[in-house]
Amino acid sequence: MRDLGLRFVRHNLFWPTLALVLLLLLNLTKTPDFFSLRLQDGHLYGSLIDILRNSAPTLLIALGMTLVIATRGIDLSVGAVAAISGAVACTYMAGSPDESTAGRAVIGMTMAVAVAVLLGVWNGFLVSVLGIQPIIATLVLMTAGRGLAMLITDGQITTVNNSLFAKVSTGFVLGLPIAILIALAVFAITAVLTRRTALGMLIEAVGINPEASRLAGVRARTITWTVYVFVAFCAGIAGLMIASNTSAADANAAGLFIELDAILAVVIGGTSLAGGRFSLTGTLIGAMFIQTLATTIPTMGIPAETNYLFKAVVVIVVCLLQSPKARAVLSVRRSSPLLTKGSAA
């Protein structure tokens, strides 16, 4: 029984899940009806649904980021890609004579995702073919990307009037928000592809040692390239959600800092930035945690802007928990001094 408990505590997802649950319970102390869900016009309403809906863009990008980080890479350009995607979709729709038809929305969104995928191909090319460090390769697009988005929207906030497009973020299917359903679908597909096929193991192999995995017959370059395309694809859809939420493309503000939130979600979920292993479920919990934190802070009567402060604390705590060095220091402190002396000698 004690062993079972210990195994439970030692499980990778124990701490992130515990943190999420505690945070949710903290909300309950302030707002007693926090967990209540109302069914209205066939839609579910409630704080939990809001958290799910608002976490969708971060979750999507974080899923892609998980795979990128698993190959020991990083993608800083996702926020810019999201902004470009929203800009493409909105500019196309606003520019066409029949902007409110469903057809225009479909074409616009397809174009936006296609552009995002192209940008992913570009990032992947820089990293896998030219061998530029991921942080710098994606920094190029992170810097230039917002400029490109502004170039597309001509520096304006482009608003569109299209009910199908608006549904991407605000619509409901089966009582649940469409946004989170899309994110969960991507989650499920990614999980099946990486955990029910060898793909996940190959990605981890590339993350542990690209050269060795190449010599072992793994197509390291193709895999690295693919994960950057995948994260850009996710960022493209996330960009559509962000733009759809306000039915407008804001090249400056859309997806600002979302790359950091996504990385944070991945790290909270227990995926190491050193690459080589990843947990998609962890990322899911991480993304929920970040959104719950953003909801909790105003609920507790603290200014929403201080969100950053709490995120900083979370990053530091999570990193210290993951750091082997910090763990060693902690375990030495916990065990009796005599024992430490003995083991040292």
């Binding site: 950091l260 944070l264 790290v267 950053y308 990053v315």
Partner: peptide, 12 residues
């Protein structure tokens, strides 16, 4: 990641 935390901390 450490300086990312520092970035959040200072901004907060």
């Amino acid at each position: 990641i450490v300086t990312l935390a520092g970035m959040f901390l200072a901004r907060g």
